[in-house]
Amino acid sequence: MTTTAPPPPLLSAQGLHVTFPGRHGAPAARAVDGVELDIRAGEIVALVGESGCGKTTLARSLLGLVTPAAGRITFAGKPLEYSSRALKAYRRRVQLVLQDPTGSLNPRHTVYDAVAEGLRIHGRTGNERAAVAEALAHAGLRPPERFFLRYPHELSGGQRQRVVIAGALVLEPELIVADEPVASLDASVRGEILALLLRLRTELGLSALVVTHDLGLAWNIADRVAVMYLGRIVETGEVEQVLTAPRHPYTQALLSVLPEAQGDPVVLTGEPPDPSRIPTGCRFHARCQVLASGEAERAGVADRCRTEDLEVLDGGGGDQVACHWARAPGRPGD
């Protein structure tokens, strides 16, 4: 019997490291510290974690906005090049959607000009009016002509976010990177924007990387989830598997504070460590509730948690976890 190999990834990060110089002779901050991540055509991947874990820096590096210190990014099988011409061509195919539509839109520009801006920057010829109208319609602003001459202050927050999305769609990208796409919106319109992103995947075949701190959002929109902590992905897999049976204590803690969670919330002690001083052993061990409770000791892995680093997880999409305790003999999923 023959098996069908999975399709190659559309976007792939391989051994990615991004560092920022320290101040006054301090060690460099390892914002992204060895990441493997694949996104396939038509797939939505959620990248989740606390503020400061490195997820936005990773997203910016995938967009070519930050040059990695090591590793490489490939798109459609070809390595990303960092010349101005190559990056301009790349950004026609990979577009960014930011979390703050008010800050993303020039208050002096009409909706039409805001959406047409990408076409003009990239010198796209053809019927500009038709392209703008089509993008607005895909973003759910219908009839589009009714919005052409409006200004951002005349729109609701949800409408402004749809204009930002239309500005990305007008270049007909293959992938969008959405950084906290509903964080600044009222709860009443968040569901509408998430439904829009899912519809765009169905209608246009778009892939998406959705960067968020909200695991509930990941559950509603993603095919796969990658949980990031201190510059590295610590758990990844199909969204149902990771969010219904999380194996990493950090993922368990993030899930425990959702309104629908069963049991008491896990309160993590302290703040995430400084990325210029990543601890030895598991990078989560200083805040780990499993180590603090003695469960890791009973499983015989406490010393390894404190002293033995874990390998970088493969980006290919299988269910994986970087945790000595989760992998201890006899534990589910071992």
Rank of each mutant, 00 (worst) to 15 (best):
Q99G: 08
E50C: 12
Q252S: 14
T212Q: 11
A286V: 06
V115T: 06
A89F: 13
D179L: 01
P246D: 10
A187K: 00
G25I: 03
P249N: 08
T212H: 13
T244P: 14
L171K: 12
R120D: 15
V66N: 13
P107Q: 06
V267F: 15
G71R: 12
I221L: 11
F20E: 14
G42M: 08
Q161I: 11
Q262G: 15
V182L: 01
T110W: 05
V210R: 10
R40W: 04
T19P: 00
Q161Y: 04
V227F: 06
A130W: 00
V115D: 01
V97Y: 02
Y229K: 00
I73Y: 02
S256P: 03
A328H: 07
H17W: 10
R40A: 14
V177W: 13
V32F: 04
S256V: 02
L65I: 05
Q252K: 15
P27F: 07
G231V: 02
H213V: 04
L37W: 01
V321G: 02
A222K: 07
F148T: 05
Y90R: 07
T4M: 06
D274E: 08
P6H: 13
V312Y: 08
G34H: 03
S156N: 04
Y250R: 07
G64D: 04
H248A: 11
I193V: 07
W325D: 08
G103S: 13
V115P: 02
A296S: 02
L171Y: 11
A89L: 15
G330V: 07
C323E: 01
A245M: 05
A70Q: 14
L171A: 10
Q289I: 11
R224M: 13
F284T: 03
A178L: 11
V227D: 00
H122Q: 06
R232C: 08
P152M: 06
E43L: 04
R162P: 09
G15W: 04
A226F: 03
T2W: 12
L96H: 15
E145T: 03
V163F: 02
A5S: 15
G123R: 05
D33E: 10
C53Y: 09
R277G: 09
L11Y: 10
H17P: 08
H153W: 14
E235Y: 07
L200H: 12
R247P: 14
V225I: 12
T74M: 11
A76R: 00
G167F: 10
P152G: 06
H138N: 15
G118R: 03
V290Y: 03
V182I: 06
L194D: 00
P144C: 01
E271C: 12
A178S: 09
R120P: 01
E192P: 03
A133F: 04
C282H: 04
L11W: 10
G126A: 03
R108M: 14
Y229D: 04
K55N: 09
D214M: 04
T244I: 05
S276K: 09
H109V: 00
G25Y: 01
L230D: 07
L197S: 05
T57R: 01
P275L: 01
A41V: 09
L217M: 14
R142H: 13
G330R: 06
D33L: 00
G237F: 03
V111Q: 07
L196S: 10
R92V: 06
G77V: 12
L136A: 07
L215N: 05
K88S: 15
R72P: 06
V234T: 03
W219L: 12
P101N: 08
G25R: 05
I176D: 02
T67N: 11
A222P: 10
V32W: 03
